[in-house]
Design a protein around this nucleic acid. Structure first.
Lengths: 196, 196
DNA sequence: GTCTATAGCGGGATAGAC
DNA sequence: GTCTATCCCGCTATAGAC
């Protein structure tokens, strides 16, 4: 459990990664440049090439980091009703925070939108990221059904798909409306259907 | 009711608009250039500036055209069960066609993803487009409830929001998976909940 | 209405000094 | 590890001939 390091004192590689991720999620892969990052940190763009030789490297590093983080943050899906409820709640709240900020999209949805302009070196980890998500969410749905937390009878895979689509759309709609409210209203209905 | 003109013989302004829309929906606002359009048509990029002085003009023209088209295509929401069912079906099939092609996103979702890099001249008609959609969908939901086609009790506005979020997410997930299948599985569940 | 030519900018990337 | 300087490219946009 590493201590949180203030942004200004974090190692440069991490500061670049953090800033680039922020910009990627809000503006898209083509919407930020080495110049933008350099200006925000107060260094020259050539210095960024020292840490990430190419933009592809930077892009794929962002995705890989998120993939690892998610795997750690989610932990195992054990078949315990309280645990399942907790995991589901965390899931909804993660995206609610994005909707509250109103600037960023979720990584999966962001890169899905950008996919036609992504270099292959970024598309590959993105696909892996999506696969991880799908797998975990499907497990969660299945465990939810077994423990009675989720009452719907469809296949767990179908439920996972519905959940992800709805959340992804909700985050985007909230951002484009400039308010969290749509997110909350959509998720309230989604929960009702899933947990009713 | 105007006859459909083959692309190669359509007026140049329209050919540019068609191609630019195609590219916008698949690659995003920053993902296509005057050069791309010029190459595809077989003219020089300077010629495009004759029809659309700036990229903003081209962008906003695309959105305005879609707005008008949609208003015409949808027609009035009359409170007749068969009519409502028909309209809902058309709605789902419109997006299913996008998912089948697997290249484009819907205009609302595409520009929502791009919004942080859109010039104000494109954002304005986009907001109007989203507003039109929201209004029409809400009317449709209300009429659906009155005629008994839709059995859910939530507010029509909430249902409209849920519908739009789910569809928008479904189109994106289908495209990033390279198959219509996810779209169909998501929409099947959505219909079940709405119409059950 | 289309062309050639070019301006002016910003992008990613590299070489080499410090 | 950061810097200056520079390269080459593609972008939007404009001027002016045809």
């Amino acid at each position: 459990m590493s201590a949180t390091v203030p942004a200004a004192e974090a190692p440069m590689r991490q500061r670049i990664l953090d800033l680039a991720e922020e910009m990627l999620l809000s503006r898209g892969y083509e919407g930020f440049s080495y110049q933008d990052i350099a200006d925000a940190i107060g260094i020259r763009k050539a210095s960024i090439h020292h840490h990430f030789a190419s933009k592809e490297d930077l892009g794929s590093a962002i995705v890989e980091r998120s993939r690892i983080r998610l795997a750690e943050a989610r932990g195992p899906v054990v078949e315990d009703a309280a645990r399942i409820r907790k995991l589901l709640d965390n899931y909804f709240r993660f995206f609610e925070r994005l909707a509250e900020e109103g600037k960023k999209l979720c990584l999966g949805g962001r890169l899905a939108a950008d996919q036609m302009v992504l270099p292959e070196a970024v598309r590959v980890p993105h696909r892996a990221f999506l696969g991880d998500n799908e797998t975990w969410l499907t497990e969660l749905m299945r465990a939810g059904q077994k423990t009675g937390v989720i009452t719907r009878a469809q296949s767990a895979a179908d439920l996972a798909l519905l959940l992800r689509a709805t959340i992804q759309g909700a985050v985007q709609i909230a951002r484009s409306s400039g308010s969290v409210d749509p997110y909350r209203r959509i998720v309230r209905q989604l929960k009702q259907q899933l947990l009713a």
